[in-house]
Design a protein around this nucleic acid. Structure first.
Lengths: 213, 213
DNA sequence: CCGAATCCGGCTCGATACTG
DNA sequence: CAGTATCGAGCCGGATTCGG
Protein backbone atom coordinates (compact mmCIF):
# COMPACT_ATOMS: atom_id res chain seq x y z
CA UNK A 1 0.00 0.00 0.00
CA UNK A 2 2.95 2.26 0.60
CA UNK A 3 4.56 1.32 -2.68
CA UNK A 4 2.29 3.14 -5.10
CA UNK A 5 1.59 5.90 -2.64
CA UNK A 6 2.23 9.57 -3.28
CA UNK A 7 3.63 9.83 0.21
CA UNK A 8 2.27 13.28 0.89
CA UNK A 9 -0.11 14.50 3.54
CA UNK A 10 -2.20 16.94 1.57
CA UNK A 11 -5.69 17.34 0.22
CA UNK A 12 -4.84 16.81 -3.41
CA UNK A 13 -2.66 13.77 -2.99
CA UNK A 14 -5.36 12.24 -0.81
CA UNK A 15 -7.95 12.98 -3.48
CA UNK A 16 -5.74 11.47 -6.15
CA UNK A 17 -5.28 8.34 -4.12
CA UNK A 18 -9.05 7.97 -3.95
CA UNK A 19 -10.09 8.89 -7.49
CA UNK A 20 -6.82 9.39 -9.37
CA UNK A 21 -6.57 5.96 -10.95
CA UNK A 22 -7.31 5.54 -14.60
CA UNK A 23 -11.05 5.53 -15.48
CA UNK A 24 -12.14 6.32 -11.92
CA UNK A 25 -13.33 9.86 -12.53
CA UNK A 26 -15.18 8.85 -15.68
CA UNK A 27 -17.12 6.31 -13.63
CA UNK A 28 -17.91 9.05 -11.14
CA UNK A 29 -19.00 11.34 -13.95
CA UNK A 30 -21.46 8.80 -15.30
CA UNK A 31 -22.83 8.11 -11.82
CA UNK A 32 -23.39 11.83 -11.32
CA UNK A 33 -26.11 11.53 -13.94
CA UNK A 34 -27.81 8.85 -11.87
CA UNK A 35 -27.42 5.32 -10.48
CA UNK A 36 -26.28 2.83 -13.07
CA UNK A 37 -25.93 -0.90 -13.43
CA UNK A 38 -22.67 -2.59 -14.22
CA UNK A 39 -23.65 -3.14 -17.82
CA UNK A 40 -24.82 0.41 -18.24
CA UNK A 41 -21.49 1.70 -16.99
CA UNK A 42 -19.68 -0.65 -19.33
CA UNK A 43 -21.84 0.53 -22.24
CA UNK A 44 -21.17 4.19 -21.39
CA UNK A 45 -17.42 3.58 -21.29
CA UNK A 46 -16.94 1.38 -24.36
CA UNK A 47 -13.17 1.15 -24.01
CA UNK A 48 -12.92 0.15 -20.38
CA UNK A 49 -11.86 -3.46 -19.84
CA UNK A 50 -14.31 -5.34 -17.69
CA UNK A 51 -11.72 -6.30 -15.10
CA UNK A 52 -10.75 -2.67 -14.69
CA UNK A 53 -14.36 -1.63 -14.27
CA UNK A 54 -14.89 -4.31 -11.63
CA UNK A 55 -11.69 -3.32 -9.83
CA UNK A 56 -12.50 0.40 -9.88
CA UNK A 57 -15.98 -0.19 -8.56
CA UNK A 58 -14.54 -2.04 -5.60
CA UNK A 59 -11.90 0.60 -4.96
CA UNK A 60 -14.38 3.46 -5.19
CA UNK A 61 -16.67 1.60 -2.86
CA UNK A 62 -13.84 1.11 -0.37
CA UNK A 63 -13.03 4.81 -0.69
CA UNK A 64 -16.58 5.73 0.26
CA UNK A 65 -17.31 7.30 -3.11
CA UNK A 66 -20.02 4.92 -4.26
CA UNK A 67 -22.30 2.21 -2.97
CA UNK A 68 -23.41 -1.13 -4.38
CA UNK A 69 -27.16 -1.28 -3.95
CA UNK A 70 -29.47 -4.20 -4.70
CA UNK A 71 -32.57 -2.81 -6.34
CA UNK A 72 -35.41 -5.12 -7.32
CA UNK A 73 -33.31 -8.16 -8.23
CA UNK A 74 -30.56 -6.18 -9.95
CA UNK A 75 -27.55 -4.35 -8.58
CA UNK A 76 -27.04 -0.66 -9.17
CA UNK A 77 -24.11 1.54 -8.27
CA UNK A 78 -24.81 4.96 -6.87
CA UNK A 79 -22.70 7.74 -5.44
CA UNK A 80 -22.57 8.29 -1.71
CA UNK A 81 -23.12 11.84 -0.42
CA UNK A 82 -19.35 12.18 -0.29
CA UNK A 83 -19.10 10.98 -3.86
CA UNK A 84 -21.69 13.48 -4.97
CA UNK A 85 -19.50 16.22 -3.55
CA UNK A 86 -17.23 15.55 -6.52
CA UNK A 87 -19.69 17.28 -8.81
CA UNK A 88 -17.96 20.70 -8.62
CA UNK A 89 -14.66 18.98 -9.32
CA UNK A 90 -16.02 17.13 -12.31
CA UNK A 91 -17.70 20.23 -13.70
CA UNK A 92 -14.60 22.36 -13.26
CA UNK A 93 -12.42 19.73 -14.86
CA UNK A 94 -14.90 19.28 -17.67
CA UNK A 95 -14.98 23.00 -18.35
CA UNK A 96 -11.21 23.05 -18.52
CA UNK A 97 -11.00 20.07 -20.84
CA UNK A 98 -13.86 21.27 -23.01
CA UNK A 99 -11.79 24.24 -24.10
CA UNK A 100 -9.09 21.92 -25.38
CA UNK A 101 -11.43 19.80 -27.48
CA UNK A 102 -10.59 19.86 -31.13
CA UNK A 103 -12.26 18.06 -33.96
CA UNK A 104 -13.59 14.66 -32.92
CA UNK A 105 -11.80 11.61 -34.20
CA UNK A 106 -13.79 8.86 -35.83
CA UNK A 107 -13.36 6.42 -32.99
CA UNK A 108 -14.53 8.89 -30.36
CA UNK A 109 -18.04 8.40 -29.09
CA UNK A 110 -20.42 10.76 -27.35
CA UNK A 111 -22.51 9.07 -24.72
CA UNK A 112 -25.65 10.23 -23.05
CA UNK A 113 -23.85 10.58 -19.73
CA UNK A 114 -20.90 12.52 -21.07
CA UNK A 115 -23.17 14.84 -23.00
CA UNK A 116 -25.37 15.40 -19.98
CA UNK A 117 -22.41 16.42 -17.86
CA UNK A 118 -20.96 18.57 -20.63
CA UNK A 119 -24.28 20.39 -20.82
CA UNK A 120 -24.28 20.87 -17.06
CA UNK A 121 -20.77 22.24 -17.39
CA UNK A 122 -21.80 24.79 -19.98
CA UNK A 123 -25.10 25.67 -18.30
CA UNK A 124 -25.37 29.28 -17.13
CA UNK A 125 -28.05 29.41 -14.43
CA UNK A 126 -27.98 33.17 -14.06
CA UNK A 127 -28.56 33.63 -17.79
CA UNK A 128 -31.26 30.98 -17.89
CA UNK A 129 -33.07 32.54 -14.96
CA UNK A 130 -33.77 35.62 -17.04
CA UNK A 131 -35.18 33.63 -19.95
CA UNK A 132 -38.53 31.87 -20.32
CA UNK A 133 -38.69 28.19 -19.49
CA UNK A 134 -37.72 26.19 -22.56
CA UNK A 135 -37.55 22.55 -23.52
CA UNK A 136 -35.18 21.38 -26.25
CA UNK A 137 -35.01 17.97 -27.84
CA UNK A 138 -31.53 17.37 -29.20
CA UNK A 139 -30.49 14.41 -31.27
CA UNK A 140 -26.76 13.95 -31.43
CA UNK A 141 -25.93 10.97 -33.54
CA UNK A 142 -27.86 8.12 -32.01
CA UNK A 143 -28.52 9.68 -28.62
CA UNK A 144 -31.60 11.73 -28.04
CA UNK A 145 -31.87 14.08 -25.09
CA UNK A 146 -34.66 16.13 -23.65
CA UNK A 147 -33.20 19.28 -22.15
CA UNK A 148 -35.52 21.24 -19.93
CA UNK A 149 -34.49 24.65 -18.68
CA UNK A 150 -36.77 26.27 -16.15
CA UNK A 151 -35.39 29.36 -14.51
CA UNK A 152 -32.01 28.53 -13.02
CA UNK A 153 -32.80 24.79 -13.04
CA UNK A 154 -31.57 22.33 -15.65
CA UNK A 155 -32.89 18.85 -16.23
CA UNK A 156 -31.47 16.54 -18.85
CA UNK A 157 -33.27 13.29 -19.55
CA UNK A 158 -33.33 10.77 -22.31
CA UNK A 159 -36.55 9.83 -24.02
CA UNK A 160 -38.96 12.17 -25.64
CA UNK A 161 -41.53 14.65 -24.52
CA UNK A 162 -42.86 17.96 -25.73
CA UNK A 163 -40.17 20.40 -26.77
CA UNK A 164 -40.21 23.98 -27.97
CA UNK A 165 -37.32 23.28 -30.27
CA UNK A 166 -36.12 19.96 -31.66
CA UNK A 167 -32.88 19.74 -33.57
CA UNK A 168 -30.38 17.22 -34.84
CA UNK A 169 -26.68 17.94 -34.74
CA UNK A 170 -23.23 16.44 -34.34
CA UNK A 171 -20.02 17.02 -32.41
CA UNK A 172 -19.72 20.44 -34.02
CA UNK A 173 -22.37 21.60 -31.59
CA UNK A 174 -19.28 22.35 -29.51
CA UNK A 175 -18.51 25.25 -31.81
CA UNK A 176 -21.92 26.74 -31.08
CA UNK A 177 -21.35 26.40 -27.34
CA UNK A 178 -17.94 28.03 -27.49
CA UNK A 179 -19.37 30.88 -29.50
CA UNK A 180 -17.14 30.05 -32.41
CA UNK A 181 -20.16 29.43 -34.62
CA UNK A 182 -23.21 31.68 -34.47
CA UNK A 183 -26.55 29.86 -34.16
CA UNK A 184 -27.93 31.15 -37.45
CA UNK A 185 -24.71 30.19 -39.22
CA UNK A 186 -24.94 26.75 -37.64
CA UNK A 187 -28.38 26.28 -39.15
CA UNK A 188 -27.38 27.78 -42.48
CA UNK A 189 -24.36 25.49 -42.81
CA UNK A 190 -26.26 22.41 -41.71
CA UNK A 191 -24.31 21.90 -38.50
CA UNK A 192 -27.65 22.07 -36.74
CA UNK A 193 -30.77 20.80 -38.47
CA UNK A 194 -34.01 22.11 -37.06
CA UNK A 195 -36.59 19.32 -36.84
CA UNK A 196 -39.37 21.17 -35.12
CA UNK A 197 -40.11 24.62 -33.78
CA UNK A 198 -38.67 28.05 -34.53
CA UNK A 199 -34.97 27.98 -35.35
CA UNK A 200 -34.57 31.28 -33.60
CA UNK A 201 -34.75 29.41 -30.31
CA UNK A 202 -31.25 28.13 -31.01
CA UNK A 203 -30.10 31.61 -30.03
CA UNK A 204 -31.60 31.06 -26.62
CA UNK A 205 -29.94 27.67 -26.43
CA UNK A 206 -26.57 29.21 -27.22
CA UNK A 207 -27.05 31.87 -24.55
CA UNK A 208 -28.05 29.28 -21.98
CA UNK A 209 -25.21 26.90 -22.76
CA UNK A 210 -21.96 28.73 -23.26
CA UNK A 211 -18.34 28.10 -22.50
CA UNK A 212 -15.71 30.52 -23.74
CA UNK A 213 -12.87 28.94 -25.64
CA UNK B 1 -2.03 7.06 -29.61
CA UNK B 2 -5.43 5.46 -29.89
CA UNK B 3 -4.49 2.51 -27.72
CA UNK B 4 -4.48 4.14 -24.30
CA UNK B 5 -7.19 6.58 -25.26
CA UNK B 6 -10.50 6.97 -23.45
CA UNK B 7 -12.21 7.14 -26.81
CA UNK B 8 -14.76 9.72 -25.79
CA UNK B 9 -15.44 13.17 -27.11
CA UNK B 10 -16.18 15.04 -23.92
CA UNK B 11 -14.68 17.68 -21.68
CA UNK B 12 -13.70 15.41 -18.86
CA UNK B 13 -12.12 12.69 -20.91
CA UNK B 14 -10.15 15.35 -22.76
CA UNK B 15 -9.02 16.83 -19.45
CA UNK B 16 -7.99 13.42 -18.18
CA UNK B 17 -5.98 12.77 -21.29
CA UNK B 18 -4.07 15.98 -20.67
CA UNK B 19 -3.56 15.85 -16.89
CA UNK B 20 -4.93 12.46 -15.84
CA UNK B 21 -1.68 10.54 -15.76
CA UNK B 22 -0.11 9.67 -12.49
CA UNK B 23 1.73 12.59 -10.78
CA UNK B 24 0.66 15.12 -13.39
CA UNK B 25 -1.75 17.08 -11.24
CA UNK B 26 0.71 17.17 -8.34
CA UNK B 27 3.23 18.81 -10.65
CA UNK B 28 0.57 21.32 -11.65
CA UNK B 29 -0.24 21.95 -8.00
CA UNK B 30 3.37 22.75 -7.16
CA UNK B 31 3.69 25.02 -10.18
CA UNK B 32 0.58 26.90 -9.08
CA UNK B 33 2.68 28.18 -6.21
CA UNK B 34 5.22 29.58 -8.64
CA UNK B 35 7.76 28.63 -11.31
CA UNK B 36 10.09 25.86 -10.23
CA UNK B 37 13.26 24.22 -11.38
CA UNK B 38 13.52 20.53 -12.13
CA UNK B 39 15.32 19.85 -8.89
CA UNK B 40 12.82 21.88 -6.88
CA UNK B 41 9.97 19.86 -8.32
CA UNK B 42 11.81 16.65 -7.55
CA UNK B 43 12.42 17.82 -4.00
CA UNK B 44 8.78 18.73 -3.54
CA UNK B 45 7.65 15.31 -4.78
CA UNK B 46 10.10 13.03 -3.00
CA UNK B 47 8.59 9.80 -4.29
CA UNK B 48 8.42 10.63 -7.98
CA UNK B 49 10.97 8.74 -10.09
CA UNK B 50 13.14 11.08 -12.07
CA UNK B 51 12.26 9.50 -15.40
CA UNK B 52 8.56 9.98 -14.67
CA UNK B 53 9.12 13.60 -13.75
CA UNK B 54 11.00 14.17 -16.97
CA UNK B 55 8.31 12.39 -18.99
CA UNK B 56 5.45 14.29 -17.37
CA UNK B 57 7.14 17.63 -17.90
CA UNK B 58 7.41 16.86 -21.60
CA UNK B 59 3.80 15.68 -21.81
CA UNK B 60 2.45 18.67 -19.93
CA UNK B 61 4.46 20.93 -22.14
CA UNK B 62 3.05 19.27 -25.25
CA UNK B 63 -0.43 19.62 -23.76
CA UNK B 64 0.06 23.36 -23.40
CA UNK B 65 -0.13 23.25 -19.61
CA UNK B 66 3.37 24.39 -18.82
CA UNK B 67 6.40 25.99 -20.44
CA UNK B 68 10.10 25.34 -20.18
CA UNK B 69 11.73 28.72 -19.69
CA UNK B 70 15.45 29.55 -19.57
CA UNK B 71 15.96 32.08 -16.81
CA UNK B 72 19.39 33.46 -16.10
CA UNK B 73 21.38 30.33 -16.95
CA UNK B 74 18.94 27.89 -15.39
CA UNK B 75 15.72 26.36 -16.65
CA UNK B 76 12.44 26.85 -14.83
CA UNK B 77 9.05 25.37 -15.53
CA UNK B 78 6.03 27.61 -15.30
CA UNK B 79 2.36 27.20 -16.04
CA UNK B 80 0.91 28.68 -19.20
CA UNK B 81 -2.25 30.78 -18.88
CA UNK B 82 -4.20 27.67 -19.80
CA UNK B 83 -2.40 25.70 -17.12
CA UNK B 84 -3.17 28.36 -14.55
CA UNK B 85 -6.85 27.87 -15.32
CA UNK B 86 -6.50 24.57 -13.49
CA UNK B 87 -6.37 26.41 -10.19
CA UNK B 88 -10.12 26.08 -9.49
CA UNK B 89 -9.90 22.38 -10.33
CA UNK B 90 -6.95 21.85 -8.02
CA UNK B 91 -8.57 23.79 -5.20
CA UNK B 92 -11.88 21.95 -5.55
CA UNK B 93 -10.14 18.61 -5.66
CA UNK B 94 -7.98 19.55 -2.71
CA UNK B 95 -11.01 20.56 -0.67
CA UNK B 96 -12.65 17.25 -1.43
CA UNK B 97 -9.57 15.22 -0.55
CA UNK B 98 -8.84 17.29 2.55
CA UNK B 99 -12.03 16.04 4.13
CA UNK B 100 -10.88 12.46 3.75
CA UNK B 101 -7.50 13.02 5.38
CA UNK B 102 -7.01 10.93 8.47
CA UNK B 103 -4.02 10.73 10.71
CA UNK B 104 -0.75 11.19 8.84
CA UNK B 105 1.43 8.15 8.38
CA UNK B 106 5.08 8.35 9.30
CA UNK B 107 6.30 8.27 5.73
CA UNK B 108 4.01 11.08 4.61
CA UNK B 109 5.65 14.45 4.16
CA UNK B 110 4.19 17.94 4.07
CA UNK B 111 5.92 20.21 1.61
CA UNK B 112 5.85 23.92 1.33
CA UNK B 113 3.93 23.73 -1.95
CA UNK B 114 1.31 21.29 -0.75
CA UNK B 115 0.75 23.29 2.41
CA UNK B 116 0.48 26.52 0.46
CA UNK B 117 -2.22 25.08 -1.76
CA UNK B 118 -4.03 23.47 1.15
CA UNK B 119 -4.12 26.87 2.83
CA UNK B 120 -5.47 28.45 -0.34
CA UNK B 121 -8.09 25.72 -0.40
CA UNK B 122 -9.22 26.46 3.12
CA UNK B 123 -8.98 30.23 2.76
CA UNK B 124 -12.28 32.07 3.13
CA UNK B 125 -11.91 35.46 1.45
CA UNK B 126 -15.30 36.75 2.53
CA UNK B 127 -14.53 36.01 6.17
CA UNK B 128 -11.05 37.45 5.91
CA UNK B 129 -12.34 40.63 4.33
CA UNK B 130 -14.20 41.46 7.53
CA UNK B 131 -11.14 40.94 9.72
CA UNK B 132 -8.08 43.15 10.22
CA UNK B 133 -5.04 42.40 8.11
CA UNK B 134 -2.94 39.78 9.86
CA UNK B 135 0.39 38.09 9.31
CA UNK B 136 1.07 34.63 10.71
CA UNK B 137 4.35 32.76 10.80
CA UNK B 138 3.71 29.05 10.93
CA UNK B 139 6.36 26.40 11.43
CA UNK B 140 5.19 22.95 10.47
CA UNK B 141 7.94 20.47 11.01
CA UNK B 142 10.86 21.82 9.05
CA UNK B 143 8.95 24.16 6.76
CA UNK B 144 8.35 27.72 7.78
CA UNK B 145 5.68 29.83 6.10
CA UNK B 146 4.75 33.46 6.29
CA UNK B 147 1.01 33.76 5.77
CA UNK B 148 -0.24 37.24 5.10
CA UNK B 149 -3.96 37.92 5.02
CA UNK B 150 -5.01 41.36 3.94
CA UNK B 151 -8.70 41.78 3.32
CA UNK B 152 -9.80 39.15 0.82
CA UNK B 153 -6.22 38.61 -0.39
CA UNK B 154 -3.95 35.77 0.72
CA UNK B 155 -0.22 35.57 0.26
CA UNK B 156 1.83 32.60 1.37
CA UNK B 157 5.58 32.85 1.21
CA UNK B 158 8.49 31.06 2.72
CA UNK B 159 11.14 32.93 4.67
CA UNK B 160 10.55 35.19 7.59
CA UNK B 161 9.20 38.63 8.16
CA UNK B 162 7.20 40.38 10.82
CA UNK B 163 4.20 38.43 12.03
CA UNK B 164 1.42 39.19 14.47
CA UNK B 165 1.34 35.57 15.56
CA UNK B 166 4.04 32.94 15.24
CA UNK B 167 3.32 29.33 16.07
CA UNK B 168 4.75 25.87 15.62
CA UNK B 169 2.50 22.92 14.91
CA UNK B 170 2.23 19.59 13.12
CA UNK B 171 -0.15 17.71 10.83
CA UNK B 172 -2.86 17.96 13.49
CA UNK B 173 -3.32 21.56 12.41
CA UNK B 174 -5.80 19.91 10.08
CA UNK B 175 -8.09 19.31 13.04
CA UNK B 176 -8.09 23.02 13.79
CA UNK B 177 -8.97 23.82 10.19
CA UNK B 178 -11.82 21.32 10.10
CA UNK B 179 -13.18 22.75 13.33
CA UNK B 180 -12.70 19.44 15.07
CA UNK B 181 -10.31 21.03 17.53
CA UNK B 182 -10.98 24.46 19.00
CA UNK B 183 -8.04 26.90 18.86
CA UNK B 184 -7.75 27.29 22.63
CA UNK B 185 -7.85 23.50 23.05
CA UNK B 186 -5.17 23.18 20.40
CA UNK B 187 -2.92 25.45 22.39
CA UNK B 188 -3.80 23.82 25.70
CA UNK B 189 -3.04 20.34 24.39
CA UNK B 190 0.18 21.40 22.73
CA UNK B 191 -1.01 20.74 19.16
CA UNK B 192 -0.17 24.36 18.49
CA UNK B 193 2.71 26.00 20.30
CA UNK B 194 2.62 29.78 20.36
CA UNK B 195 6.09 31.19 19.74
CA UNK B 196 5.27 34.86 19.58
CA UNK B 197 2.25 37.11 19.86
CA UNK B 198 -1.15 36.67 21.48
CA UNK B 199 -2.49 33.14 21.28
CA UNK B 200 -5.97 34.53 20.85
CA UNK B 201 -5.07 35.32 17.26
CA UNK B 202 -5.31 31.60 16.53
CA UNK B 203 -9.07 32.09 16.68
CA UNK B 204 -8.79 34.51 13.82
CA UNK B 205 -6.62 32.04 11.96
CA UNK B 206 -9.22 29.29 12.43
CA UNK B 207 -11.97 31.59 11.16
CA UNK B 208 -9.92 32.59 8.15
CA UNK B 209 -8.89 29.06 7.23
CA UNK B 210 -11.75 26.66 7.58
CA UNK B 211 -12.96 23.58 5.77
CA UNK B 212 -15.88 21.63 7.16
CA UNK B 213 -15.28 17.92 7.55
C1' DC C 1 -27.98 -12.17 -20.27
C1' DC C 2 -25.77 -9.77 -16.38
C1' DG C 3 -21.90 -9.27 -13.43
C1' DA C 4 -18.05 -10.23 -12.97
C1' DA C 5 -13.33 -13.58 -12.49
C1' DT C 6 -9.34 -15.40 -14.98
C1' DC C 7 -5.50 -15.43 -17.98
C1' DC C 8 -1.96 -13.29 -20.49
C1' DG C 9 0.93 -9.86 -23.42
C1' DG C 10 2.59 -5.32 -23.32
C1' DC C 11 3.47 -1.23 -21.51
C1' DT C 12 3.65 2.10 -17.62
C1' DC C 13 5.53 2.89 -13.46
C1' DG C 14 9.00 2.68 -9.74
C1' DA C 15 13.83 2.20 -8.30
C1' DT C 16 18.42 2.82 -9.17
C1' DA C 17 22.45 3.86 -11.76
C1' DC C 18 24.57 6.81 -14.73
C1' DT C 19 26.00 10.95 -17.72
C1' DG C 20 26.94 15.86 -19.71
C1' DC D 1 21.87 20.09 -11.55
C1' DA D 2 19.05 18.24 -15.10
C1' DG D 3 17.94 14.92 -16.91
C1' DT D 4 18.79 9.76 -19.54
C1' DA D 5 19.30 4.56 -19.33
C1' DT D 6 18.14 0.28 -17.74
C1' DC D 7 15.45 -3.25 -15.73
C1' DG D 8 11.99 -5.74 -12.85
C1' DA D 9 7.22 -5.53 -10.94
C1' DG D 10 2.76 -4.75 -11.63
C1' DC D 11 -1.08 -2.26 -13.77
C1' DC D 12 -3.66 -1.92 -17.86
C1' DG D 13 -5.95 -3.71 -22.02
C1' DG D 14 -8.12 -7.51 -24.63
C1' DA D 15 -10.21 -11.81 -24.81
C1' DT D 16 -12.27 -15.60 -22.90
C1' DT D 17 -14.70 -18.02 -19.37
C1' DC D 18 -17.75 -18.64 -15.50
C1' DG D 19 -21.66 -18.43 -12.11
C1' DG D 20 -26.42 -16.95 -11.10
Amino acid sequence: MAARDYGQYSGISQALELIGERWALLIVRDLLVGPRRYGELAAGLPRIPSNILATRLKELQAAGVLRRVPRSRVIVYELTPYGRELEPVVLALGAWGFKALGEPRDEQVITRESLTIDLRTAFRPQVAAALPATAYRARLGATELLIRVDGPALDVASGDGPADLAFATGPDLRRVITGELAPDRAIATGVVEVLHGPGGLLDRFASTFHLAA
